[in-house]
Design a protein around this nucleic acid. Sequence first.
DNA 1: ATTTTAACTACGGAAATCCGTAAGGACATT
DNA 2: AATGTCCTTACGGATTTCCGTAGTTAAAAT
Lengths: 221, 221
Amino acid sequence: MYKKVIIADDLGSINLGVLTIANSLGLKNVERVEYCDDAYLKIKKGLLDKEPFDLLITDLSFKSDHREQKYPSGEDLIRILSNECPDLNIIVYSIEDRLQRVRRLVESYNIIGYVCKGRKGLDELAQAIRETYNSNLYLSEQVKQALNQKTALEIDDFDVLLLKDLSKGKSQEDISLKLKRKKISPSSLSSIEKRLNKLKIQFQANNTIHLVSIAKDLGLI
Amino acid sequence: MYKKVIIADDLGSINLGVLTIANSLGLKNVERVEYCDDAYLKIKKGLLDKEPFDLLITDLSFKSDHREQKYPSGEDLIRILSNECPDLNIIVYSIEDRLQRVRRLVESYNIIGYVCKGRKGLDELAQAIRETYNSNLYLSEQVKQALNQKTALEIDDFDVLLLKDLSKGKSQEDISLKLKRKKISPSSLSSIEKRLNKLKIQFQANNTIHLVSIAKDLGLI
DNA sequence: ATTTTAACTACGGAAATCCGTAAGGACATT
DNA sequence: AATGTCCTTACGGATTTCCGTAGTTAAAAT
C-alpha cells in the first residue's frame, strides 16, 4: 500500500473526511495542506529527503485569498508535477464531473485516478486508493465514459485557444493577427472561420455565441 | 439558541464538519439529509407535529442520481420553503460566491445567512448560526458586497432574458420576433440592440460573445 | 393643457461574420 | 514524376450585428 500520502483541499471538512478514509485503509503517513503551493513544496522536499510521496490526492479548484500563489489551481499543480515527478501517483478528488475536463487531465497529465465528490465520493475514493496502487487507472462511475467516448471529439489545443479568445472578447481578425505575430501555423481568417464552422457542427451550435456558451458549459474553456 | 436544526448537503464529509460545529455551539437537536426532498418532508412533518425546525442549513447544488427529485437544487427547496415556511431561518452554505447569485437569494427568498465554503467556511458558519438567531442577516466576507452593489440593481428581467436567449443561440432578430409574438413591450430590434449596448458598457464587454461569457461567469444566467 | 422626459422604434451606413468556391502548397502513395 | 488528399489561404457576396441619428409615443411633471 502507499507509503506516504499528501492531500490537498482547501475545505477543512473535506480534508477531514478524506483523512478518515485514509486511516481506515491503514495509511500511516498522511499529510494534508490547504494550498497547492504547500503541496508542491512538501512534495519537492520529500524528494530531497529521499522520502518521496507516492500519492497525491487533490481537488481542482482552490479559493484564492490574500496569499499569493504560484499554483492557484489543482490543474496548475498537476501540470508541473506531471513533468517533475512522473513517479508520483495523482488522484483528483473534485466536484467537477464534466467529461472533457476529466479527459484532458487523464490524457495530458497522466493522472491515475479521478473521483467525483458526491454522496458516494468517499467510498469511491477508498476504492481508487486501493486500485491505483497497482497503477490501474480508476475513474468514478459518472465519468467512466470520459475516455471510451467513441465520439472521440477531436478538439485540439487550437480549438480551445480559439474558444478562449472569443470568450474573452477578441474578434476573429484579432485572433488571426495574434496568431500571425506568434507564427502559429493556421492563422488566416479563413482558417479560423473554417475551424469555428467545424465546431459549430460538432456541437450543434446555431452561431458563435451559442458555441462559446456550450464550450463553457462543457468545461472546455 | 436554535431549538431544532436540519442540514442538507449531499457530501457526507461536509455534513460531518457542519455537525461538529453544531455540536460545539451546543445545538442539541440536529438532523441531516442528503437530498432536498428529504429536507422538505422532514420540515413539513415538523410543522405537523408542532415541533417545527427553526433553522435550515443547505447547500445549493446537489448531484442528481437515480432518485427522482421534486426539488433537485437547493434553490428549488429554498423557493418553496420561503413561501410555505416564512418562519424558518435559512442559511445557505455553498461553494458558490457569485454576487448576483447571493443577491437573488437574499432578495427573492429572504434567506437569513449566506456562508461560502472555503478555508474559513466552518468558522464563518458558526458565526452565522450565532448571529442569525436574532434575525440579523449574515453574509460571508467575500460576498458582503453583494447587496450594496449599485450596478447590479440596474439589471432587470428583460436583460437576463436577452442574455439567456443569446446564450442559447438565438439571433437578435429571432428574439425580437419572439417578443412581438408574446406581446412583450420592448420588442424592436433597435431596443434589443440598445439594451445590449448598455450591458456591454456596464460589463466592459468588447462584443456580444464577451458579454454572454461574462454573464455566465457572474452567474447571471 | 402644455411641457418635459424617457423609452421605444425606424432607418442607414459601417463593420464583422457567415458561407461557398477555389487556388496554392505540403505530403504521402504509387 | 504524377496523382490524390489534406490543409491553409484568398476572395466575394449574403447576412447579421454595430452604431449613430432621428422620429414617435407615452407617461410624468408643471
